[in-house]
Design a protein around this nucleic acid. Structure first.
Lengths: 219, 219, 219, 219
DNA sequence: TATGAATGAGGATTCATTCAT
DNA sequence: TATGAATGAATCCTCATTCAT
């Protein structure tokens, strides 16, 4: 029994080490350029051992993504819960998103890289679905908040999913651009300002009522 | 004379064929996975011939980007010129951008791929600069239009570059997301709607709204 | 234990096979023209396996040189030790040198090839040093013997290093010329005679001759 | 007629340019690494044109060797003629040899490179013979001088060819070693001294009469 | 005769994956 | 279960030579 549990513990330990190292290496080199020798060496296991835990390089990659992705949505839900009204909730979600990615820059890079066609090509459809569902979940949280805002009159009527998507896109795009443009090291203060401005710009746009002039009956 | 010109014509033909094939292959496989055998075979030339036209794989890649990139900014400038006021100009720029990329989907993928760190790693700084300057140029056109709008009171005071950047990011992000999410074949109608909405959302956010606290009863 | 040692033995076997085959191939084709396919095939391993043992073609080349080079100086030292006086020692060194190279003709070719600029160009400075130091060591042994002879009056005063160098040059040159001139297969008897004569010629030149101006009538 | 001669002149000019450039390039890069693009460009002709003048790379190489080699033997003959007695003649030949190669270092490298097995492998036996005959011719001149010396009692009895060969070997070896060792730029003063010493050492050895002691009848 | 575009075989090196131990 | 040695397909690039113009 003790033997069994010790063995289990060792396995868990190995799995964790591998995932962590893979994370670093994928971040540093990207999926294609990353090589399993580095990962094995970094994790302190033999190259063959990797295959005891993961079926392939792509499989390991997905595992890395999933590893930290689960808590992401949960945290985002918490962030929303702390907000008072819809506007506040959207701001908090955006804030969390920004804070999270700037604090976990590497992860961001990895997530993005997955969208790159090369990686997707090597993944099974299931794997792709597994990862993308993480994003959908996040989008849903944001869309819910927006929907709330619309229902309570804080936002002008709109398609919440669509607007959530736009929000999302802006956030990702800004972080990504800055991430790549700044030689892969965020200048946080600059990004912070841009990000704030963008959020406010969007919020302004969402709040505006499309002017309903006293249009004549024929309009 | 005829001899020389015929030879020239043949060279031009080859160059064109190579670029076109490279374009397709880079689009299909991405930079890293693309292989020169495919390109050579597709272009109907020997592998060695590629090297008479381009110094390296990376060089060819840059050439593909530059091939169509030059006219891009020019067209965008034209699109702006056709607009009446700043708002109209921004709309037209956005429209052009959207039309162009949906009509040249592959190019979009290639441009984006370049921002991937692996590709950049293999390019000379000059090459990178050559390509990225295309984007800066486009950003400048948009920022100019916004600046105009601010000066003429169409837009609320803002940092034109920053707002242009946000616009840009939204546009790229939406196309990109749709591009990848939809199994790499845009559902144009859906994207069109989202894109329009996003532009209007942003324009609304940018538009001056004289605070009318005591606005009429209908507000 | 048995497992580990058997694996070790196999590795040693592979390494040996690779070195031996590389030796033959480098001898047959020279460094530049030799190709790793041949070596791998000859050694009965896959091409990739070569890289588990040696970092590069150049590295393998150096290993081939070093493989047999170490014992060379040692043997030469022994040869010297067997001599009675300085003259005898020099003769024995020369003899050993001759015997060794004619018995290991291929090695000779490889050593010489290394001095060719192309090969050196691909080696790291350390590698070059590693190999050339072998030669210096040999030169030192010879120079020591000569120095001894000078001190004991067997040889006329001279710069031992310089004379050792001359000896060396003659020896190498003769073997080399014969080696190449005779379609790469030494006619040993002929070379033996020339070599002997050359050694005696040099020894005669080195030998002290007290100027005997009034030498007897027979001079 | 004028046309014909002008054409002839042009051909001669091209041939000369090609040879000169090939000379430089072969010196700089060695036979294997030299490439015809460089030679063609340097000579100001098209690559294809090279093949109007020479059948192959190897052929061009041999032509380069022969180009300057003819005058070499002639000059050496003159050098000998200026000497008074055999010893003087040998000294003058050696001197000339030394002066010539240190003044035409590049040529030396090329000649030596030819002895490299790779080059020989690509040459026709005729070509090899053509080049090696140059060396034989030079050896003959030296052997003749030695023969003279033996006949006139200046030198101890010996096989003139053999001794000439030794002389030759020493000379080549010293220049070569210095040439390669000194990063391909001769330290002339040092080499000069060594060379002188070597020549005198050999001359001393050649002059010595093997002592014929009053050996007893049984010896 | 001269050109230079085209060729394509050839070669060093990498690395995900397998499998005997 | 873990190892790590072995694999071999895959790929970019070079360059002597050819040949249509």
């Amino acid at each position: 029994m003790s033997d069994v549990s010790r063995r289990e513990a060792k396995k868990a330990f190995h799995r964790r080490r591998i995932l962590e190292t893979a994370h670093d290496v994928f971040f540093r080199d990207g999926f294609v350029e990353a090589n399993l020798d580095d990962i094995a060496k970094g994790a302190g296991v033999a190259k063959g051992t990797l295959y005891r835990y993961f079926d392939s390089k792509a499989d390991l990659y997905v595992a890395v993504l999933a590893h930290g992705g689960d808590i992401f949505a949960e945290r985002m839900r918490e962030a929303r819960a702390e907000g008072d009204d819809a506007v506040d909730q959207v701001r908090r979600i955006a804030r969390f998103y920004f804070e999270h990615w700037t604090a976990n820059e590497e992860y961001f890079a990895i997530f993005w890289a997955m969208e790159n066609q090369q990686v997707i090509g090597e993944l099974t459809p299931e794997a792709v679905k597994q990862v993308t569902s993480l994003w959908s979940e996040c989008l849903r949280i944001l869309a819910d908040a927006i929907q709330d805002g619309v229902e309570h009159g804080s936002f002008a009527p709109c398609d919440p999913w669509e607007v959530a998507n736009i929000f999302w896109t802006v956030a990702n795009g800004l972080i990504r651009t800055e991430h790549l443009g700044a030689q892969r090291r965020l200048r946080r203060s600059r990004l912070d300002r841009i990000f704030q401005d963008a959020v406010e710009l969007l919020l302004r746009g969402m709040t505006v009522r499309t002017p309903e002039p006293d249009s004549g009956p024929g309009a």
